[in-house]
Simulated scan of single mutants.
Amino acid sequence: MATNQEEVSLLGVIGSPFVCRVQIALKLKGIEYKLLQENLANKSELLLKYNPVHKKVPVFVHNEKPISESLVIVEYIDETWKENPILPSHPYQRSVARFWSKFIDDKVVSAAWKAVFTVDEKEREKNTEESWEALRFLENEIKDNKYFGGDEIGLIDIAAVFIAFWIPIFQEVGGLGLFTSDKFPKLYKWSQELINHPVIKEVLPPRDPILAFFKARYESLAASK
């Protein structure tokens, strides 16, 4: 638990899967923090000061020291507050967790986004196929485990909250069958376990406003064709 001497704050926006990752880690650790909501259309001086390179959220600030990039922040939280570990203790298992977490960012996040929010039909098809291929790898990796981390939520699960919560919203918006129980039964079962975990349920943003936001974005894109 963060002591009174420690100042912990998070610059973020409601509805961001990357901000949500950090919030999950903080909740799992029982760390109290202050959420400083950003308007990305009018970025605050604090955000520009703390993340001058990328100028984006999340930014985690611990005793006035800023850390950027969600997976880096989650590892920092895990190393700073030891209770309820997020990464495995064994070096090999830690490296595996890092590999798959980066795989999700590199191979799933951008492809799934482009599969829905791209005007060009061929580009959409290409990214849909890339999303399926990446999800197949994760289907094989989860095996019959409850979570990627075993019986407890770990780094890969936190990284993959994008798949469990945001991809179903994307596919509802775009009418695509990216991530379904028949295509990916093990991964789908995992996703239901994750989003119904008490800690995750408490941290996830309300679904309806997020769905409405992305529907409006999709309709605006469709109108511009």
Rank of each mutant, 00 (worst) to 15 (best):
A160G: 04
L47G: 05
N63K: 10
P58L: 07
Y92K: 03
S70L: 10
L176Q: 15
Y218K: 12
A164S: 09
L26Y: 02
H62V: 11
P198Q: 01
I14T: 11
N42W: 08
K189A: 14
R136Y: 15
Y76F: 13
A164L: 04
T80H: 08
V119N: 15
E75F: 06
I104P: 07
T3F: 12
V74Y: 01
Q37Y: 04
L28G: 02
L11M: 09
I73E: 07
A111S: 12
L40C: 05
F137V: 15
V59E: 02
P206I: 13
E141A: 04
K102A: 04
F103L: 11
L178I: 07
R98E: 03
V116S: 10
A212N: 06
T80A: 07
P85A: 03
L40T: 04
K122W: 06
E69D: 15
C20A: 02
K215E: 14
A112S: 15
V199G: 03
Y147E: 04
T3W: 11
I77F: 00
I200N: 09
E121W: 06
P168W: 01
D157A: 02
K43V: 09
I86R: 03
V161M: 00
F103I: 05
Q5N: 11
F162K: 09
F170Q: 04
Q192L: 07
F18G: 09
M1I: 10
R217T: 03
A111G: 08
R207N: 12
R124D: 14
I77D: 03
V96T: 14
K143C: 03
N84T: 10
